[in-house]
């Protein structure tokens, strides 16, 4: 049984059995960024603390950062992203995942939004951004 959590920076983390999570950016984020042309992923083994910059996403417009939704150690990265960065646009919450984290502070998940709360958050962000 997995559950997906969201951050205010528009990252998602899908957590299985409370120990490991898969991280990526949301559909809202990819739409804001436009066509992704490059993704810089953290090396496997990188130790991240919550909120730390973990990856860089370059779109045709600008560079954006992906921050670690929670603390953890990178145990895997998406091997297909460097050659097919457009996957982030096509399937941001599926094939366009960035990396997998072994959680070191699972209690930090409580800081994040669930699906319903995130949808409300995006609706409000969408209104203010027009």
């Amino acid at each position: 049984m997995s559950k997906v959590y969201y951050t205010e920076d528009h990252e998602w983390i899908r957590v299985e059995d409370g120990k490991e999570g898969t991280v990526g950016i949301t559909d809202f984020a990819q739409a804001q960024m436009g066509d992704v042309v490059f993704v810089e992923l953290p090396p496997v083994g990188t130790v991240l603390t919550q909120g730390e910059q973990a990856a860089v996403v370059e779109s045709v417009k600008a560079a954006s950062e992906l921050y670690a939704p929670v603390s953890g150690t990178v145990v895997a990265v998406n091997p297909d992203l460097p050659d097919a960065p457009g996957t982030v646009n096509e399937d941001p919450q599926g094939e366009g995942w960035f990396f997998r984290l072994a959680l070191t502070q699972p209690n930090e998940l409580a800081d994040l939004m669930d699906q319903d709360a995130y949808e409300v958050f995006v609706a409000e962000a969408g209104e203010s951004a027009g």
């Binding site: 436009g34 066509d35 045709v60 646009n89 027009g130």
Partner: peptide, 15 residues
């Protein structure tokens, strides 16, 4: 100005 940055096709396809 509030200018159109891109349209639904996206910048790559517009280009």
């Amino acid at each position: 100005y509030r200018m159109a940055l891109s349209f639904p096709a996206g910048t790559l396809r517009e280009h």
